[in-house]
């Protein structure tokens, strides 16, 4: 469990500066995450492509591209990264649909409760870490298995 001490990277995207600030200040106060904020989904995608990212949270209604489209692109780049959408009441229906279509981890309704938000992000990151761990264990097993096979070959060769 060496990763636990490593700070997780969270990406926040919203076209409203005040929302970004309120989200990031809260996370910076209460957590040790590396928080990266973007007013533009496009710029966020560039960052996500080139960096290690553990969770992405995006607003739904944005002029450049809507949150669902943005998160679908994130999925294409990094399918393992949990994605969360922040929605207004009127977009709830669309957001719920998107959970199934785009494969979202959660949706958060505005106005949100900070404690809930923290919990949801924490859960997302835990899931992400578990998945990562699982992936690592699987590759370790795979490696052990192929090592084992190599040894088996050697043994067979030896006794043949």
């Amino acid at each position: 469990m060496t990763e636990e001490t490593e700070n997780e990277t969270v990406v926040l995207v919203d076209d409203e500066e005040m929302v970004l600030t309120s989200l990031s200040s809260f996370l910076m106060l209460e957590t040790d995450y590396n928080v990266h904020t973007f007013l533009s989904p496009g710029e966020a995608l560039t960052f996500i492509e080139g960096n290690e990212v553990d969770l992405v949270l995006s607003d739904y209604l944005m002029p450049e591209m809507d949150g669902i489209t943005f998160l679908a692109k994130v999925r294409d780049l990094k399918p393992e990264v949990p994605r969360i959408i922040l929605t207004g009441y009127a977009d709830k229906e669309n957001a719920i649909k998107a959970i199934n279509e785009v494969g979202l981890f959660q949706y958060i309704e505005k106005p949100w409760d900070n404690t809930d938000l923290q919990l949801i992000i924490r859960n997302g990151l835990d899931k992400q870490r578990l998945m990562k761990d699982l992936q690592k264990k699987i590759s370790e097993i795979n490696k052990a298995y192929s090592d084992l096979q190599g040894i088996q070959q050697d043994i067979l060769k030896t006794f043949a």
């Binding site: 005040m18 929302v19 309120s22 989200l23 809260f26 106005p111 949100w112 900070n114």
Partner: peptide, 8 residues
């Protein structure tokens, strides 16, 4: 804005 104020 209310969401932002509330959270902030």
């Amino acid at each position: 804005p209310v969401g932002a104020i509330h959270s902030m």
